[in-house]
Amino acid sequence: MERVRKLASEKGVMIFSKSTCCLCYSVHLLFRELGIDPYVHEIDHDPEGKEIEKALLRMGCNGPVPAVFIGGELVGSTNEVMSLHLSGSLVQRLKPYQKLS
């Protein structure tokens, strides 16, 4: 769990993902469309991926992936991200991390 916290705190917007997960891809695409270039950590390419997956579940993510962190804080998985987006509060949380045009 410490490695997950460390990785998430080092990046502004972090997505723990699996390369074959369509929901992970959709969340990543949403962030890109909002002007965010998130750091994506593919846990299926990490030798400690199973441990990361367990840690994410223990931290409260309701599916192991996608697990989204903003500013080192766990936002959640697809449902939580989409709820924030639909309410308009996701954009506000992402403002400090948007690319300058």
Results as ranks from 00 to 15, higher is better:
M1N: 14
M1T: 15
M1K: 13
M1I: 14
E2S: 14
E2W: 06
R3W: 09
R5P: 03
R5W: 11
K6M: 12
K6N: 08
L7V: 02
A8H: 11
A8Y: 08
E10S: 10
K11D: 11
K11G: 01
K11M: 11
V13A: 00
V13Q: 09
V13G: 00
I15W: 08
K18I: 05
S19K: 05
T20C: 10
C21P: 03
C24Q: 08
C24R: 06
C24K: 03
Y25Q: 02
S26D: 13
S26K: 11
V27S: 04
H28E: 02
H28T: 13
L30T: 01
F31A: 05
F31T: 00
R32A: 12
R32H: 10
R32G: 01
E33D: 12
E33Y: 10
E33R: 14
L34F: 05
L34N: 09
G35I: 08
G35A: 00
I36S: 04
D37F: 10
D37C: 04
D37H: 12
P38H: 03
P38D: 05
Y39M: 13
H41K: 08
E42F: 13
E42W: 02
I43V: 14
I43S: 07
D44Y: 11
P47R: 08
E48C: 09
G49Q: 00
K50E: 15
E51Q: 14
E51I: 07
E51H: 15
E51C: 10
I52T: 11
E53G: 10
E53T: 12
A55P: 03
L56D: 07
M59W: 12
G60I: 10
G60R: 07
G60T: 07
C61Q: 01
C61H: 05
G63H: 14
G63K: 04
G63M: 13
G63R: 03
P64R: 10
P66D: 05
A67N: 08
V68Q: 00
V68F: 04
F69L: 02
F69K: 10
I70S: 01
I70T: 03
G71H: 06
G72S: 12
G72V: 05
E73D: 13
E73P: 07
L74S: 05
V75A: 03
V75C: 05
G76N: 06
G76I: 02
G76W: 08
G76T: 02
S77Y: 02
T78I: 06
T78H: 06
N79Q: 15
N79M: 15
E80T: 13
E80G: 12
E80S: 12
M82I: 10
M82F: 12
M82P: 03
M82N: 02
S83G: 13
L84D: 06
L86C: 09
G88Y: 02
L90S: 00
V91Y: 09
Q92P: 09
Q92W: 11
R93D: 07
L94T: 03
L94R: 04
K95A: 13
Y97I: 07
L100Y: 07
S101M: 14
S101P: 13
